[in-house]
């Protein structure tokens, strides 16, 4: 396992957000974490990447417990987090945003070309201020920026948020390409249908607890999941 979470609990003040949660991600997988608003999906990602401190439990990444390691150090150990709403640096140019992605290491020639071949739109707009990009382009930029730290595992928080269906589709196709080139992906999504279609395995989260966990194929045909998340009655 590249990432295993054991009995993780996270509180916001006195209110528990995640209770005793365990999950695993194997190398080379795309794992989807789906659930409704407020289920705690973003909280889990933030606890994994160190942005919030868990109340209890372990987060084991690449053989090391990182539950209490500072986020900027976790990045150096090979994990990259694309935050919810993308978190691009709006007043910097596309190119400067990408440079920040490679902050933890030396940028090699070819790194940027690789990203530009994944998302040719970014090459066209590299001198543009990132805040003026469209939502889809901003998502492409956020993903590219995260890839430039050469992560073993990339955490994606709602990549489809606020995007047109056509663009969502192309973003998910790219996520599959990124995965095929060797990066493990943990994907948090409200768009359960799209997320389960591209992922290998899925976890269903309800108010801080995992209620289903199976291969994505099985979850897509699971009656309870279909009713709750895939809009079928």
């Amino acid at each position: 396992m590249i990432l295993s979470i054991k009995n993780l609990s996270v509180n916001y003040g006195l209110i528990p957000a995640i209770r005793n949660l365990s999950m695993d991600v194997a190398p080379g997988e795309i794992v989807a974490l789906i659930g409704a608003n407020g289920a705690g999906k973003t909280t889990i990602l933030r606890a994994i990447s160190g942005l919030i401190k868990p109340a209890a439990g372990n987060v084991i990444f690449d053989g090391q417990d990182i539950a209490h390691v500072k986020p900027h150090l976790i990045v150096r150990s090979g994990m990259s987090h694309v935050p919810e709403r993308r978190g691009i640096f709006a007043n910097l140019t596309v190119y400067e945003n990408l440079l920040m992605g490679a902050y933890t290491r030396k940028l090699l020639t070819g790194d940027l070309e690789e990203v530009y071949s994944l998302f040719p739109r970014l090459a066209e707009r590299k001198k543009q201020v990132a805040g003026t990009l469209s939502g889809g382009e901003q998502q492409m930029l956020a993903i590219s920026r995260a890839l430039l730290s050469r992560p073993k595992l990339i955490l994606l928080d709602e990549p489809s948020l606020g995007l047109a269906p056509q663009i969502t589709k192309s973003i998910f196709e790219t996520i599959q390409r990124i995965n095929k080139s060797g990066t493990t992906v943990l994907l948090v999504e409200q768009n359960a249908q799209a997320a389960l279609k591209v992922s290998h395995r899925g976890y269903v989260l309800e108010v801080g607890e995992i209620t289903h966990s199976d291969s994505s194929q099985a979850l897509l045909t699971n009656d309870a999941v279909r009713k709750a998340y895939l809009g079928e009655h």
Binding site: S49, H72, R76, S80, P83, F89, A90, L92, L99, M100
Partner: peptide
């Protein structure tokens, strides 16, 4: 650039290392 990125978005800056 790191100082600027702190202004732009602290969480994202932290996620960049």
């Amino acid at each position: 650039r790191a100082i600027l990125s702190v202004r732009e978005n602290e969480i994202a800056a932290e996620s960049m290392g």
